[in-house]
Design a protein around this nucleic acid. Sequence first.
DNA 1: CTTTTGCTTGCAATCGATTACCAAGGAGTC
DNA 2: GACTCCTTGGTAATCGATTGCAAGCAAAAG
Lengths: 341, 341
Amino acid sequence: MDTADQPTLADVAERAGVSVATASRALTGARPVSDDLQRKVREASKSLGYRRNTVASSLRLQRTETVGLVLPRYTTTFLSALIESVSDGLEHHDMSLVLRYSEPDAVHDRENIESLIGRRVDGIIICPPSLEVSRESIEAAGAIPVVQVGRFVETDRSDSVGLDEDRATSMLVAHLADRGAGRILVVGLDADATADVRRIRALQATGALRGVSVSAAEFTGAVLDGGIRAAERLVSEYASGDDGWSGPDALVCANDDVASGVLAVLRMRGVAVPGTVQVASLLDLAPGREDHSTTTLRHPWPEMGREAVRLLIDAIGRGSDRVARRVSLAPQLVPGSSTRP
Amino acid sequence: MDTADQPTLADVAERAGVSVATASRALTGARPVSDDLQRKVREASKSLGYRRNTVASSLRLQRTETVGLVLPRYTTTFLSALIESVSDGLEHHDMSLVLRYSEPDAVHDRENIESLIGRRVDGIIICPPSLEVSRESIEAAGAIPVVQVGRFVETDRSDSVGLDEDRATSMLVAHLADRGAGRILVVGLDADATADVRRIRALQATGALRGVSVSAAEFTGAVLDGGIRAAERLVSEYASGDDGWSGPDALVCANDDVASGVLAVLRMRGVAVPGTVQVASLLDLAPGREDHSTTTLRHPWPEMGREAVRLLIDAIGRGSDRVARRVSLAPQLVPGSSTRP
DNA sequence: CTTTTGCTTGCAATCGATTACCAAGGAGTC
DNA sequence: GACTCCTTGGTAATCGATTGCAAGCAAAAG
C-alpha cells in the first residue's frame, strides 16, 4: 500500500534531512537555498520519483493553471483545429485544458460553467452554443476571465475573438466581381436570423461599391439538401431551353455543404460552372482536405485559438481591471474550380 | 475584494448558524442531518451562491474526478469523434476531461503523462503516438488506471480498446469476393511495418478461404500522392492498348486518401471503376461526410470512446487487482460507388 | 570586541472540504 | 429508575504544498 502511493514533499524532506519548507523552496525556487541542500533535495526528489501534487498546490496558491474550453457539439469537424491550437497555446504556458461540450440549452450550458467554476479554472474559452442562452452563463463566471471565440454574445465582461465578417464578405464579392459577376444570389442564409441578416447586408454593401447587385434566395436550410433544393428552383426558373440562362451569374453559398448541393444540381442540369454561373462558399467546412472543387473562405481557426489563449492569459495576469477586447481575424480565400481562374 | 471571492463552506455554515461539519453533511448527504438544519443550510448555500471547491475536495478525498485523454496530433479529423464520445461518457459519470496532444517523441510523451499524474487524474485514456515510445510512459502511471485506445503498446498494466482487425479485413475481402474479385492488390500498406504486415497477412488468410489471391504493391506512402504513384504504375504495367486489363480486379487501399488518388488516376486513364477494377479502403478518414464515392470501412470511434470510458471507470472502481482486458470492435462497411452494387 | 546586516533555515499557519471521534439528548428495555 | 442504543451535532485532525515570521549564524561595520 505504501509503495503504491505517490511520495509527498514530506517524504522528500525527510530523505534529504531538511524541513518541508526547505524542500519546497529548493524545488520551486521561491526563495534561495544553499547549494548543498539544494543538491540533497533534488537527489532525494529524483530518487523517490517525487511529483508535485498539483491539487494541493492549487489549493494553497488559489490558482489551478487550468483553462476550461466549452464548445458546441455540432460541426465538430472544424472545431478540432481550434482545440488543437488552444491546447498548444496553453501548453506553452504550462496550463492544462479541461474540455466540455455544450448543447444549445440553457440548463446544460449553465452546468458546464458552474462545473468549471467549481474546479476553480483560471479562465474559460467558450464558443457560445446559442446567441440567446449563454449570456448569463458567461456572467455567472464572475471574476473568472472569459474569452468568447467564433461567436459573440454581447457582454461587457468578456473578450472575444472572431471572424472579420466585413472583410470576409468583401473578399468574396471582390473575387467574384473581378471575374465578371454582376448579379450575385446568396444561398443558404436565413433572412430571419440576426447574424445572417448582417452578413447579407455586408455582402450588399460591398457589392454596391463594385456595382454588383446582391440579393438573397429564399432560405432552404444551410445543409446539402438545402443547396439542392435552392439550385433546383433556380434551374427551373432561369434555365430556358438549351444553354439559355437569365439568372444570377454568381452564387454565394452559406457553406461548403450548400455549395456541394448547388454544384451537383447545376452540373447535372447542364449549367456551366464557372462558365455560366460562378459558385463560392462563405465557410470551409473541412479544412485540411485539399479539395479545391469549390472556391471557399477558410476560417482562421488555428489563429483564433492562439489569439484566444493570448487574450485569456493576459486577462488572467491583469486581474479585474480590464476592458472588453474584441479581435477580428481575416479569413483566407481559397480559390477553386467553381469560379473562374 | 470580499465579494469577488467565492463563498466557502464556512461562510455557508455561519450564515445557517451551524458548524462546517453539519453544513458539509447537509450538502453531501454523507450523514443524516435534521430536516430543520438541512433546510437552513440549503437556503444559506443558495443565497450565497455557494459552489463546492473541487480542489479542496479532491485533496481531502484523494480523488479528482478527472480523466486525462492523450491523443496524437496528426489525423485529427476522425479523432474528434473519439473526443466527443469520451467527453460524453465522462460527463455521464460527473467526471471532467483534461485533453493533451502528444508528439511521437518520447520526452514529450512522458511529460504529458507526468503532468497528468501531477494533477492526480483518476485515470488516463491514451492513443499511443508511437508503438515504441509509449510503453514506459504508460508504466510510469503506476497505480493510475490506463486504457489504450486505437493502438496498442504491449503492457500488462493497461486495458485497451481497438479495432477488430481480423473482422475488418475479412469483411472487406468478403465484400469484394462476393462481387467477383479474384485477384486483390493491396495499396498503401508497408510490408516493412509490423502492424501493416499483420494486416496483409489477415487479408491473405481471409482471401485463401474464399479462393482469392491477395498480394501487396510496393509501398508508395499511405497518402494521396502514394495512391497516385501506385495507380500510375499499375496502369503502365497492366493496361494494354484500349480497354485491355490484365491486372488485379480489386484494389484494397490503406485509407480513403490513398483510394482517392487511385480512383483519380484510374478514371483519368480510362480504366472502368468498378467495372474493370473495384476499389475499397480500409479506413474512413472523414466520417460524417456522407460521400459514398469509395467503399470504405468506418472505424467505430464513438463506440471505442464509450467502451474506453466504461473500462476506465470500472478499473478506477476496482482498484489494483485487475487483469488487462482487451476489447475489439468491428468496423462498419460503408458501400460506395467504387465497388459493384 | 560588539553591533548590525544579510542570508538560510525551520516552525507553524494556511488554503477549503471531509470525517474520525466525542458528547449530549432521546427512545427503548429490564 | 438505571441502563444501553441510536441519532445528531460539534471539535479538531487531515489531505500536501506554500509562506509569514522569527531564530540562528556568519560576515561586515563600527
